[in-house]
Every structure is written in structure tokens, then in C-alpha cells.
Amino acid sequence: MVRDRSVYKPRRSLVTSDTPRKSGALTRSQRRYGWLFCAGAVIIIGAFVFYPALSALYTSFTDATGFNIPQWVGLKNYQDLFTNPDVLRALLNTAIYTVIYVPILIAVSLGVAVLLNREDLPLRGFFRSAIFLPFVLSMAVASMAWKFILDPNLGFLPFWLSKIGIHMGDVLGSSIWALPTVTLVGVWKNFGYFMVIFLAGLQGVSHELYEAAELDGAGPWRKFTSVTLPGLRSTTTYIVIMSLIQAFQAFDQIYVMTSGGPDHMTETMVYRIYTEGFRNFHVGAASALSYVLLLITFAAGLIQLWLNNKHEKEDM
């Protein structure tokens, strides 16, 4: 082991970005303490992430109910995923949720971040706090409020809309509108958080580039597309992946606002895992669905790592 780490070019930033330089005495004690310091976290994460991930894989090939002695059923649970219309509905709903959620979330959070990105804007702190508020408070609580606001017999939104001649009806009971509605509540809850990250990204875009663009006679839109957007590339990658992962995991507002209804039209993957695993006791089937969730989340994470790498190489 004579490799000099100080000239070692890191390939994966998360892994090797800051390896300490070796020097005899220090290293010896570091060897001893390294695993000791990691022990607590390694035990917890091993026991409650890695072990269950493997045991869920096994369960997904059995007919476990939580009460029986599980029998091996091979790929049956996975085949059922693609033949059971309710599961297919849940997969489709998650896909629709994602397709609505991600673009709207990014457009809104980026838009608001651009508006707020002026140090001299009066009341800037007030706006930022107000817009950040939904992220701080619980989705379950906010969903109760939204359910009330949307209630066709009691709510403010149907009432106000009726004043301008629009009959809103029962959106949460509508098989067409319920899913977009709970999706938009998801956007409403989280865009303040992504706005903060976009704001941080915007601070990193150099002023000189804007000035240069201005000298070239670029208008606000042109400046946005040729300076702001390219400058936000790695921020946007991060936000796309984070929001994808959030969309795959939608649950709280659905549990509170629609309970998956009407007629399974708002049941998502996590909602289905919850009802199958903890209400209907189809533990094997729920484990198979859990694995689908795990794999698509994992795929999103890998894409993030890969893009990060690529950007870093290009920036070097």
C-alpha cells in the first residue's frame, strides 16, 4: 500500500472526495477508531435496512399472510402484479401522479425562486417564510384542511367558484379529478422546499454571465434560457430525482383525503402496500409490490449518481 492518496483523482465524489493523508501514528489509531465510530450506525442500518431488504425479497416469493407458515410460490406474486387490475391501477396511478407532480413542482418552485431571487426585494423574508410553511407542517394536517376547503357541501373553493358561476362538484369523489387533486396538494406541500434549493442554485450562477448576456442585448427570457437554466443544471438534476422519489412514495394526503377512492382511483403503490400488507394480510403480494417500489427508487438513485459523475467530469 504505497499509493499516494493526495494525488489520487476521485472517481466517485461521495466515496473518495476527501481521503485523509496517511502518516504513520495517526493512521494506526484511525484504523482502530474507524469501525468503532461507525458501529452504532452500521448495526442499526444493517438490521433495519439491509436485513429487511433481503428478507422482503424472500417473502415476495412466498404466500405469507403474517399468520401462516409461508410456502414458496415462486414468481406468482410478481405475475399477479401484472394481472391483478387493482395493482395495475395502483401502478398506473403512481405513474400518473409522477407525470403530473414532477413537471408542475419544478416549474412552480423554479418560477417562485426566480421571482424571489433579488436581495433587495422588500418583504423577501416574509414571502419565503410563507411559501416554506407547508413544508414544515404535517401533510396529514394540511390534507384535513384541504379536504374541508374542497368539500362540495361545506368548502370555500366550491362556494367561491359558485359565485362566479362555476359548479365545481365533488372533486375528491370524482374518478377523473381526485388523482390530480391529491397530486396538486402534494405539489403545494413540497414546492417551498425545492424553491429554497433552487434559490441556493441561483446564487451560484455568476453575475458576469448575466451582464455579458445583457451587453449582447438578451432580454429577460433569453437570459433565463441561456444563462439561468444552464447554470442550474446540477441543481435541477438533483431536484428532478428527489421529486421523482417523492412521487413514488405518495401516501399521506391520499390516506386522509380519499382513502384511495373513489373506486381505487387514487390508490398509489405505497397506499396499496399499506392496505395489502396491513389490512388484507396479503404479505407476500405486498412484498412483491414493495420490491417494485424499491427497484424503481433505486434506479432513480443510480441515475442521480451517474449524472452527478458526468456533470463533475464535464466541469473539470
Binding site: A53, A56, F278, S290, L294
Partner: peptide, 21 residues
């Protein structure tokens, strides 16, 4: 590397086995 792998596992996918444990 192992930990990064673990970071990409959503807790919702582990509810059933963790509950069982």
C-alpha cells in the same frame, strides 16, 4: 458504497419486514 446503496432504499418498501422483525 454499501451505505450509498442503503440510502436508495425507501423505508416504505421495508415496512412489512421491519414490522415482522
Amino acid at each position: 458504497v454499501v451505505l450509498i446503496t442503503g440510502m436508495m432504499v425507501p423505508y416504505q418498501a421495508l415496512l412489512i419486514p421491519v414490522y415482522k422483525m
